[in-house]
Amino acid sequence: MTAAPLGHDDPARGLAVARPDSDEKLPHYGVVGDNYTILLTGEETDGRYALIDMLIPPGGGPPPHRHDFEEMFHVLEGRIDITFRGQRHTLAAGETANVPARAPHFFRNNARVQARVLCMITPPGLDRYFAAWGMPLPTRTELPHLDDDESRRRLQTAVELGPQYRIENLETTE
């Protein structure tokens, strides 16, 4: 089996390093009560993927949805329940799941302790979506505090922006 030779190195692209606990320039967003830190944007990966560090408090997680991109979850701490096409799967620390594009799903932290999850999206776009409607937060560990009106307003904005980012929000099934 012969393969085409590799192309040339692109010196215009540099090494992207993310230090979530010490880099003050990383953006942190309050999204559905969780704290999502954008570690690597689509711009930093030449449009290949985005990487998000998610802190999910007990009871946290997004409502049911689907989107036109792959989403991979790797649990660093705690555990989450992913409901994928109606079936619940529990992921504990060290475990990974990939959600195929267009498949209905959501996740929830049903444990009593906070979960920390890395989420990779390919192709990227979810990073820009969260920046468009999420609540800016000062640190990776601060969770958002929104009153009911502000929470509803931000979720309405998320629903309105969804089609622009290839995201479809679904009816709650739980």
Rank of each mutant, 00 (worst) to 15 (best):
E70D: 13
E71G: 07
M72R: 14
M72P: 08
H74E: 08
V75L: 00
E77T: 00
E77I: 01
R79A: 13
R79H: 10
R79T: 01
I80D: 02
I80V: 13
I80M: 05
D81V: 13
D81I: 06
F84S: 10
F84R: 12
R85F: 07
R85V: 09
G86S: 04
Q87H: 14
Q87T: 14
Q87W: 03
R88M: 09
R88A: 10
H89P: 02
H89E: 10
H89T: 14
T90M: 01
T90P: 06
L91C: 03
L91I: 05
L91K: 01
E95G: 02
E95L: 02
T96V: 07
T96K: 07
A97Y: 10
N98Q: 14
N98K: 14
N98R: 15
P100H: 06
P100L: 02
A101K: 12
R102H: 15
R102E: 14
P104D: 06
P104R: 05
P104G: 11
H105E: 03
F107H: 06
F107V: 03
R108C: 08
N109Q: 01
N110P: 09
N110V: 14
R112F: 10
R112N: 14
V113A: 12
Q114D: 10
A115H: 03
V117F: 03
V117L: 00
L118Y: 10
L118V: 04
L118H: 09
L118P: 01
L118N: 04
C119Y: 01
M120P: 04
M120L: 11
M120S: 14
T122W: 03
P123N: 08
P123H: 08
P123E: 06
G125R: 00
G125Y: 04
R128M: 07
Y129H: 04
Y129E: 03
F130W: 06
A131I: 04
A132E: 10
W133M: 11
M135W: 11
P136C: 00
P136T: 05
P136Y: 09
P136H: 02
P138E: 05
P138L: 05
T139G: 03
T139H: 08
R140Y: 00
T141H: 15
T141R: 14
E142R: 13
L143T: 00
P144W: 07
P144T: 01
H145Q: 12
H145A: 12
H145F: 10
L146F: 07
D147N: 13
D147K: 00
D148S: 15
D148C: 01
D149H: 13
D149P: 08
D149C: 01
D149T: 12
E150Q: 10
E150P: 03
E150M: 09
S151L: 13
R152L: 10
R152E: 11
R152Y: 12
